[in-house]
Nucleic acid binder design. Structure first.
Lengths: 233, 233
DNA sequence: CGTTTCTTTGAAGTCTATCAAACTGCGTGG
DNA sequence: CCACGCAGTTTGATAGACTTCAAAGAAACG
């Protein structure tokens, strides 16, 4: 096999990955190449494992295409979904600063392409690219914001406003149709309730004329004002 | 008034603040001075407001001494505590990237000193100090971790393991005495339950010989193993 | 087109919230 | 320094909400 050609091909693929990811946006072409050079692509088929609990990692994973589901496994075997990673999302940022022992499983829900960057490489990159660190800081701040929002939602004892608040956020506070980012049973775990309760709350909102469920994963908000009334704050 | 002296004094005070804050650790002295020069100290008495909901901010607040309580106000008037800031903690990092509209209140629980830095100043500092951006990234990653941990806890339907998980984390997974970072009624809101439920769960853990409550704000873990059994995972 | 997984529905039991009131630790003022 | 007063905490009883268990129905997959 032609080694040079192999190398070329590799860089191409990595550039494609790197260039599509938000945290590498607004970088000059030559900077993008620097990033691509330390990037290693990973592939996972549907149902495939990206990493498991207990693994020690010094790697940042960035989803290029596909989708990755992050979840905990409780002692009772129930899966608690932490987050769903879509293209552009990343995980492993803690590995940049400490030897992270993953406390969750990462599983591809469909054919998925990821880029990985080692801690060492990324540290070097940051030292020479202030824009990159600003991008990373911005992405982390966004995630922090949504994690705190989720915590605020989950602190609400009643299930209905908890769901309403979640839907309100997903819908962008206005009427319209959108897709749920995960299955309803995963969503139930995410919102801290059982699938049965979630189903009943969906029904209640539908009966009250606030929303309509279009298929299995689509929701249409028909009365955004009423949704805001049910939702907290 | 002697202007030069005034300036000197000002820098001294700011240096003291800056030098005690983790995110500015490991910086060279001259870098610390650069930071101090763009820092503006703020004081708040007990019960004083640092900022309120709806305020637009481009400022990073860092707690130097004292304590700040961050909370939402629900429509029913109930306060939902988001976080308690102790010396070294900071808030407003989202303001670094977007015009943050504060969605919470920040109130000093005691005499408190803070340092503030504007977005513009901090952006400039980051550009010239890779170490600073690494520190900031590390601090954000830590906060993200704890926010996700809180979300995981809150997703548990049963109150007892929710409290147990919280205590376990506070105690550092080992027996010993420690202080609660907030009042029990605030803690109840933080953990998504009523003060009455919290009190009953505390009693249950005490009766079971897992913990002892020492005063109003101290807890002693006597049986860390048993606590781990009650806590999730 | 069958099979599997996800979702919905129903009934019963448990847990938590709610309401009301007593208690206690803590700060304050005398 | 001690007594007082208030907010925070605890306790009890009840009602309501959610979970649990069981099973049927619907959608996605090969």
């Amino acid at each position: 096999m032609d080694h040079a050609h192999q190398h070329e091909h590799s860089i191409e693929r990595e550039l494609e990955c790197v260039s599509q990811v938000p945290i590498f946006q607004r970088l000059a072409d030559e900077q993008l190449i620097s990033v691509a050079q330390v990037t290693r692509p990973i592939h996972a088929d549907k149902g495939g494992t990206v990493f498991s609990t207990g693994e020690v990692s010094q790697t940042l994973y960035i989803v290029n295409t596909g989708q990755v589901r992050l979840y905990h496994l409780g002692d009772d075997g129930r899966e608690q979904v932490l987050r769903v990673l879509n293209p552009g999302d990343f995980i492993g940022e803690i590995a940049l600063f400490t030897d992270e022992v993953h406390s969750s499983y990462a599983e591809a829900t469909k054919k998925t392409e990821l880029c990985t960057i080692s801690r060492q490489s990324l540290t070097k990159l940051i030292a020479g690219m202030p824009e990159l660190s600003m991008n990373l800081l911005g992405a982390l701040a966004d995630r922090l914001k949504s994690a705190e929002r989720q915590a605020t939602l989950l602190a609400i004892p009643d299930a209905l406003p908890r769901l309403a608040g979640y839907l309100q956020e997903l819908s962008g506070h206005q009427a319209g149709t959108f897709d749920l980012p995960m299955s309803k049973q995963d969503l139930a775990a995410y919102l801290g309730m059982t699938p049965e309760s979630l189903s009943r709350k969906f029904r209640q909102l539908t009966t009250d004329g606030v929303i309509e469920t279009v298929g299995r994963r689509q929701v249409r908000v028909t009365d955004a004002d009423e949704l805001a009334t049910v939702a907290p704050e």
